[in-house]
Simulated assay, not measured.
Amino acid sequence: MKSVWVINGPNLNLLGKREPEIYGQKTLADLESLLRKKAEEHGIRLVFRQSNHEGQIIDWLHEANGDKTALGIILNPGAFTHYSYAIFDAVKAIEVPVFEVHLTNIFAREPFRSRSVIAPAAAGHICGAGFYGYELALQFFIDLRKRRGENGKAGEDPEKNQ
């Protein structure tokens, strides 16, 4: 069974409590439940991780890269987005594609949040779509598996099914 890793950075463990007017009322557990349902429909195993520590996130990126079943990584680096060249280097160094997500529109917030140092190394970037951004990133990897012929007919074009 193919897997997608979902790695969340600092303070995302406080979803539902931290600034609900910005991040909403739903929790990280709610996000995991939502994504599991979608993943199970497509025969994908999800590996969830959350840490407030930069080095731990880097270790998990390396671990996911060593996972022979990994289709990709959905990464919300939280505040590390704006200054962690170490996470950028880790994303750039691994072979498993990384899709960067953010619950809020980082470009419409405080000026220091309007830059992602991770984005240039990522396969894609979604911000401002809330939990739906994670669903879109998961769909990216579901479609990637189809394009690779790892589910259904070899070379199946997922755009034809939309």
Rank of each mutant, 00 (worst) to 15 (best):
R18W: 10
V98L: 10
G16C: 07
G24V: 04
G16N: 08
I57T: 12
K17H: 13
K17V: 14
A79D: 10
G152M: 07
I118N: 00
A119M: 06
F112L: 09
N11Q: 05
W60D: 12
P158G: 05
I118V: 11
I57F: 01
I106F: 01
G72T: 06
I87N: 00
A129E: 09
E156I: 12
I73Q: 00
K38N: 15
T69M: 14
G149A: 07
L136T: 03
L12Y: 02
E135I: 14
G124C: 05
S114F: 07
V4S: 00
P97A: 08
S33P: 03
P120A: 06
A129T: 13
G24P: 04
N105Q: 09
R148Y: 09
L35F: 04
G130D: 01
R113C: 03
A119D: 07
P158W: 06
L103I: 11
N52Q: 09
A90H: 01
E63M: 12
L75S: 03
P77H: 01
A122L: 07
T104G: 00
H82Q: 09
E32V: 06
I126Q: 02
P77M: 05
G152Y: 07
G43Q: 08
E110T: 00
L28S: 04
F140D: 05
Q139M: 11
E19K: 13
Y134G: 04
L136C: 12
I57L: 14
E110N: 02
F141R: 03
E156V: 10
F48I: 10
E156Q: 15
A154H: 14
E21F: 09
N65H: 10
Q25K: 11
T81W: 01
L14T: 07
T81Q: 05
I87R: 00
L46D: 05
D59P: 03
L46T: 02
G24A: 04
H62D: 10
G124N: 09
V101M: 07
H62N: 15
P77S: 11
A119T: 10
I22L: 12
R18F: 09
F80V: 01
I87Y: 00
G155W: 08
V117N: 00
F141T: 01
P20S: 10
E95F: 14
